[in-house]
Amino acid sequence: MLASRRLIWEFGMSTPQASPPPPLPIPGLAALLSFLIPGLGQIVQGLLSRRPQRLYKGILFLVVLLGMFMYGQWLGDWQNVYVPHFQEYLIESRPEAAYRLWPSDRFMPPFLGNLRTRLQYVAQFWIGVVAWPAIWNYHFPDWPLLGNYQLSPGAMKAGEARNRADVVRDADQVESDRQYNTDRRYDIAWMYTVMAGILNLLVIYDAWAGPVRFAPGKPAATPRN
């Protein structure tokens, strides 16, 4: 009796499930769609399998996660999702401070070192296409997507008159000023975007494998004497 009450409390099931739900359609494609746009995979699965609860869930993911990501960007003046060019500057000008591939003494490749500089982007990336202009702008600074959206600080454009050290120093100054002027909002802003990206990993998994549910029929663990 106590064990069943505990199950109800922990898993929200008032009655044990009689049979497992039917398998979800197109799990791989749905995971890819949810990776591109949060919740899109669940929406398509809901439409294909005529399961409205899955459709509503997809809409919830879409609104909440994209809302969190966009709100975080807006709080951060649309300047907190980017991959900087910093490792190149360190390798060229301050090799003693450049990121290295532990345990060897070799420099990290620039892209990897720059992600190490901006770990937030490793989480932001998983929100999908809305975070990917940063990758484009990192590799192709001369052809930026969507104006000033997710530009790469420290990028050397063609015909740039300044050297890399000056470009990086100027970009760093702009970032420092922004942090100073926006106070704690600066950190709250990128936190929203990072949390949205991490939560989308759960959404991708849900699209692929279905909800993580308590296995029906599994006996409850008996306490040791």
Partner: peptide, 30 residues
């Protein structure tokens, strides 16, 4: 700053719970 806390608690729990269940009632309860 602290007004972000209830917003984040609600949103994160809704998404996390929705990744565990399909039924709206179970999502809300969790």
């Amino acid at each position: 700053l602290y007004w972000h806390l209830p917003i984040l608690i609600v949103l994160v729990n809704l998404v996390y719970s929705a990744s565990r269940y399909d039924e709206p009632g179970q999502i809300l309860a969790h």
